[in-house]
């Protein structure tokens, strides 16, 4: 496969926070690797506290990792400066979850969409106007909508505006952080289709962050599953959603309730609470909730083992020695 357009190696982020009167380290992301290739979508799945938001912010250079590095087209990102940084800003664009928070209420839509273009040199006013019209039409709105304010639009339309903005600078990577979870169900499919169409049309690389395996299955080619800041399973979307190897992924799959009243009961239903990332369990981070745990899980943190589905998972049960 060709060189990754965006990748991360050994990524870690520690927040120093004040908790119950004393300073503590919060390991939001630990030792994370990922690769994103042009034209493909990488799904990132996890629940609250798994570090997916921190990961998104690091990959957008909104936050600096404590350890590790983000690579963009083979260049280390923490040292990017001047022209290279501007190029990164043009090429990597986000869409956030909440379209009410992501559009400045005091700006006209045209100005909001043109904002990523303002750092690109050599664009005349009429070029910008033309581009704004183009992208508005690309997401199913009208060029004339550029003159209106965000509060004149519904939630679904606002998210379309946010997408139009994201593609305005002809980016190569889209970072999608739960882009449909605040939307009504009849709107979700519309937004997901738009994103998928745009990705195919422009050959974008997408990172799709979600807590919902079903939308990830629809959007993503490859998936990483995160738990308490670590990747615990990775593989193709099809593999993760049909033959997951890690007990946590199985629990997630069981919790993704199918719209079918006669669905069989899952074999490994989820149990227990998500531990606080301030006080992560020893050994395997999932052992406190795992119905299959044994002695070793409490003391030794499992490395990634090859999984039957072709990917890998961090579970002792996949250790070839134990499997015997």
């Amino acid at each position: 496969m060709s060189e990754a357009i965006l990748s991360a190696t050994g990524l870690g982020r520690v927040f120093k926070i004040q908790h119950k009167g004393r300073k503590q380290d919060l390991h939001a992301v630990t030792d994370l690797d990922l690769e994103l290739h042009t034209g493909r979508t990488l799904g990132v799945v996890g629940e609250s506290g798994c570090g997916k938001t921190t990961l998104n912010r690091i990959l957008l250079l909104l936050d600096t990792p404590t350890t590790g590095e983000v690579w963009f087209k083979g260049k280390a990102c923490t040292t990017l400066s001047g022209e290279a940084r501007r190029e990164f800003r043009r090429a990597v664009q986000p869409v956030f979850q909440n379209p009410f928070s992501s559009l400045d209420p005091r700006m006209r839509v045209g100005k909001i969409i043109a904002e990523p273009l303002s750092t690109i040199t050599g664009m005349s006013r009429s070029d910008i106007e033309k581009r704004v019209g183009e992208v508005l039409e690309a997401v199913g709105l009208q060029a004339a909508d550029a003159r209106r304010f965000p509060n004149e639009f519904s939630g679904g339309q606002r998210q379309r505006i946010a997408i139009a903005r994201a593609i305005a600078s002809k980016p190569e990577v889209l970072m999608l952080d739960e882009p449909v979870s605040s939307q009504d169900i009849s709107i979700r499919a519309q937004i997901l289709n738009i994103l998928k169409d745009l990705q195919a049309e422009y050959g974008l690389g997408c990172v799709f962050i979600s807590h919902d395996l079903a939308t990830v299955r629809f959007m993503a080619d490859d998936v990483i599953v995160m738990y308490l800041g670590r990747v615990i399973e990775k593989g193709t979307a099809q593999a993760i959603c049909s033959t997951p190897a890690h007990p946590y992924t199985k629990a997630l799959l069981a919790a993704a309730l199918p719209p079918d009243p006669d669905a069989p009961r899952p074999e490994l239903p989820p149990q227990g609470e998500i531990p606080s990332p301030l006080d992560p369990p020893s050994g395997c981070p999932y052992h406190t909730r795992c119905p299959l745990k044994f002695d070793r899980c409490e003391t030794v943190r499992p490395p990634m083992f090859a999984a039957p589905h072709g990917g890998a998972a961090a579970c002792h049960l996949l250790d070839p020695e134990i499997a015997q």
Binding site: L61, R89, P116
Partner: peptide, 13 residues
């Protein structure tokens, strides 16, 4: 904390 401030930063402002 509004997302549009983060978005402005990702636009290189």
């Amino acid at each position: 904390n509004e997302d549009y401030v983060d978005l402005a930063r990702t636009s290189g402002l």
